[in-house]
Computed example of a mutant assay.
Amino acid sequence: MKDLQFNRHRRLRSSAGIRAMVRETVLQKEDLIYPIFIIDGENIKNEISSMPGIYQLSMDNLRAEMDEVVELGIKSVILFGVPFEHDKDEQGSGAFHHNGLVQQATRLVKELYPEMIVIADACLCEYTSHGHCGLVEGDKILNDASLDLLAKTAVSQAEAGADIIAPSNMMDGFVAAIRAGLDEAGFEDIPIMSYAVKYASAFYGPFRDAANGAPQFGDRKTYQMDPANRMEAFREAESDIAEGADFLIVKPALSYMDIIRDVKNTVKLPVVAYNVSGEYSMVKAAAINGWIDEKAIVLEMLTGFKRAGADLIITYFAKEAAAWLRDEKN
């Protein structure tokens, strides 16, 4: 036995203190972006059946939600509007209305907490009667004709006080159109957090319950990416960078950690992982049934996204994760 030669890797795992000392990836509450769904009406707090613990909130309930978010130390939120069906139209005009849901919520959040970073999701799908992310002619999603409306949406959100615009529609040229629209309106300093690498994923199902935004016909495979493709992610990311994006989102995250790493290795911009609704719901369902340790699973998963290369994480677990991270420090 004295002649054996081998490395003693366990020396650096021998105590909690040493493990913390050599830890390569650290998850912080500042990494987390919390999504909030704003619904029209008063005194509404609808729990989303497929997303336990996540709610559609009317404006009067947003204050309490933001108080909790701030108390937990979360520094940024992303806002989604959930209009009633009778308020939707073929153009999705509620997306760019001065008093649209995201615009109203943005003004309220910035009034309550000026230092909170408000990210506005800029898309038409929640507001269109057909549920698609662009204008429709027959069964075709019109690309170029949709760009002006997306730019109008971004400008109206910036006028309301949004700190960052996050366009999620996946129309070709959407970043260029939005950048031009923002610049022409005097918002040269507003960054664009582009959903640059967005796959046509089955993991979005619960979100469509939350945002009441499922397509009324067909699917989104003609504008969202094929889950089988890797090289396409580079093409999409390169285009958005050239058009003026400031952040790049990879969505979903859990099944696309290789893509997160690929994008991080390729670009110099901050990379954002979107831990989507289906990923949230699977973990929640397993936790409710007592099959997993929710805290351990969630923190491991979020740390995995960071290890894969994400600088920021949009996640429905943001509040819980922030509380767990705070408790660990205490």
Rank of each mutant, 00 (worst) to 15 (best):
F6W: 09
R8S: 12
S14A: 14
Y34L: 15
G41F: 10
I44Q: 11
S50H: 03
M51F: 08
D60C: 09
L62N: 05
R63S: 12
A64P: 00
M66N: 01
L72N: 10
E90K: 13
Q91Y: 15
F96E: 04
F96N: 05
L101V: 12
V102G: 07
L108H: 09
P114T: 08
E115A: 14
E115H: 14
M116F: 10
I119F: 07
L124P: 11
E126Q: 14
T128Y: 06
I141A: 08
N143S: 10
S146Y: 05
D148F: 07
A151S: 15
A162E: 09
A177P: 04
I178A: 03
I178V: 15
G181K: 04
A185G: 05
I190V: 15
M193N: 09
S194Y: 09
S194G: 01
Y195H: 14
A196Y: 09
V197K: 10
F203N: 11
D209W: 01
G213W: 01
A214W: 14
F217E: 04
R220A: 01
P227R: 02
M231A: 13
A237R: 10
S239N: 12
D246W: 04
V250A: 02
T266I: 01
A273L: 04
N275M: 01
S281G: 12
A285I: 09
A285D: 11
A286S: 13
A287W: 10
A296R: 14
V298S: 06
T303V: 02
D311T: 02
